Amino acid sequence: MVKNCETLNTTIKLLLCIVLCQCSLTATAQINILQNSIDKLAGYTNFSYDYVYKQKEAFGDTLILNQRFELLKKPEDKEIGYFFRQELKYGGMKIPTVSLYNGKNLTTLTPDSTYSSQGSQKTTFNESLLAELSWIKTFAEKQPSKFIQSGDTVINSIKSYHLILSTRDTVVNNAHVYTRIHLFINKITGLPAGKLIRSRSADFGKEITDYYVEFSYFNFKTDLNTINTAYFAMPEGYHVAKKKSPEETAPLQQGTKAPDWTLSDSDGNKVSLSQLRGKVVLLDFFFVGCVPCLKTLAPLDKLYEKYSKGKLAILSISIRDSKKLVAEYKATQRIKNQVFPDGGNVAKLYHVNSFPTVYIVDRDGKITNVVSYSSDDFEKKMSGIIDGLIKKS
């Protein structure tokens, strides 16, 4: 009997070793495909490519960007190792916004021929294919069981390897949440053809939210004579962007009359601030896709329920989103208060520069408080302010 048990244990251990070896070999195969793509890009003196970025959420498309990256290898640059230029267009833009790094700080060139400089070159470089592929490889090497190869597929008419990296897979409040990166690599060229990120999250809003991000890579060009050190110099004709005065950027002062406005909410109801005179008004400035804004939804709901007798009006104003998108956002997140699309001009009236920003307006139409979101005490802080204003009546 003892001998049989020992034989069984030996067999189980052997099977486990075989399975682990197979997983290791499989992970190695994926990493080799990925490494080949990295080596190809890193082997060029310079390279460029175009890509389209589409970000979608359960409540509709939020963003479509057309971008171009151009990189020049610079081993002597100890911070990045490359000079680079990123062009970005969205909406109806004809002239792109350009991010330019030539060994100094990152410089942003805007369509109005102004520029500004900041030290965020690493953040922008991390959006490049070379940096993204290197990150995936590092993650996969640390957790090879999370990196698998699916069957070959066709994306954008290109036959491609299909690699899948699972960076998160768990249960939160009985809901399955996950993040999976699907990478497609051209079988002929070895260069990326596309990437999908599918995610289900319970981290931010009140409800489980599905996210979908799509990248399409194309128009690769390598070792071009036109991409040299001079190519990354500051173009002529640009001037430093004029800084706004404190009066233009600072929040409106307490005690001043709140500027009046008129907007139609997501249901088409026209509302003006002046018609709410006699109530305390909470103005919540946000945009769809803003993570801190999602975190305000649950406390705003609680405030809505607490002051449901008509003493408080909560109005959420999107600074950029369409009526259709705002309506979908309100429905999927089960938002109880009124939500208004296309409120960019109102945000300018109130000097809103960060999100979310909350203004409290008293019964007489005067501003009493301007509050930035704090996850720890937002509801408590708002309740204290609102209770004080209601007691004054």
Score class of each variant (00 low, 15 high):
238 Y>S: 12
294 L>S: 07
239 H>C: 03
266 S>Q: 04
281 V>H: 04
239 H>T: 15
325 L>F: 06
292 P>G: 09
304 Y>I: 00
317 I>A: 07
283 L>R: 05
282 L>M: 12
251 P>T: 10
273 L>G: 04
281 V>S: 06
324 K>D: 14
302 K>G: 03
263 L>A: 06
263 L>K: 10
237 G>Y: 07
315 L>H: 05
279 K>I: 02
259 P>K: 03
312 L>Q: 03
314 I>Y: 07
237 G>C: 06
300 L>W: 04
260 D>N: 15
236 E>K: 15
294 L>C: 08
274 S>Q: 09
262 T>S: 12
247 E>G: 03
286 F>W: 15
312 L>D: 02
245 S>R: 05
285 F>L: 11
284 D>A: 05
322 S>N: 07
309 K>Q: 14
249 T>H: 07
248 E>C: 05
269 N>R: 08
297 L>I: 15
308 S>T: 02
259 P>F: 03
282 L>T: 00
264 S>L: 01
324 K>N: 12
274 S>R: 08
275 Q>I: 01
325 L>H: 07
254 Q>V: 13
288 V>N: 14
299 P>Q: 10
280 V>N: 00
239 H>R: 13
309 K>F: 00
263 L>Y: 11
264 S>D: 09
315 L>I: 09
318 S>V: 10
290 C>W: 06
257 K>R: 07
284 D>H: 13
254 Q>K: 15
297 L>D: 00
293 C>F: 04
264 S>R: 12
265 D>E: 04
302 K>F: 00
250 A>L: 13
290 C>N: 12
269 N>C: 00
252 L>S: 10
281 V>W: 04
302 K>I: 03
264 S>M: 05
246 P>M: 07
270 K>P: 00
250 A>V: 03
253 Q>E: 13
281 V>L: 03
295 K>T: 02
269 N>M: 01
257 K>H: 02
320 R>N: 06
237 G>I: 04
243 K>T: 11
254 Q>A: 15
316 S>D: 04
248 E>G: 05
314 I>R: 10
263 L>V: 08
265 D>N: 15
304 Y>F: 13
242 K>N: 09
246 P>A: 08
313 A>Y: 01
277 R>N: 07
321 D>W: 08
264 S>G: 03
256 T>L: 04
270 K>Q: 11
280 V>W: 00
315 L>Q: 06
254 Q>W: 01
304 Y>A: 04
239 H>Y: 10
268 G>E: 05
277 R>A: 08
282 L>P: 02
292 P>D: 11
238 Y>W: 11
313 A>E: 14
261 W>Y: 12
314 I>V: 14
307 Y>E: 06
307 Y>H: 10
298 A>C: 00
245 S>L: 10
271 V>H: 07
238 Y>H: 12
269 N>K: 14
297 L>E: 05
256 T>C: 06
244 K>C: 01
240 V>C: 01
317 I>T: 08
237 G>P: 04
305 E>R: 13
312 L>F: 02
310 G>D: 05
306 K>H: 12
302 K>A: 14
264 S>W: 00
250 A>R: 14
317 I>E: 09
325 L>P: 05
256 T>Q: 10
236 E>D: 15
302 K>S: 14
279 K>N: 15
279 K>L: 05
322 S>G: 06
294 L>D: 06
279 K>Y: 02
320 R>F: 01
298 A>G: 02
244 K>H: 07
263 L>M: 13
286 F>I: 13
267 D>N: 12
269 N>E: 07
238 Y>D: 11
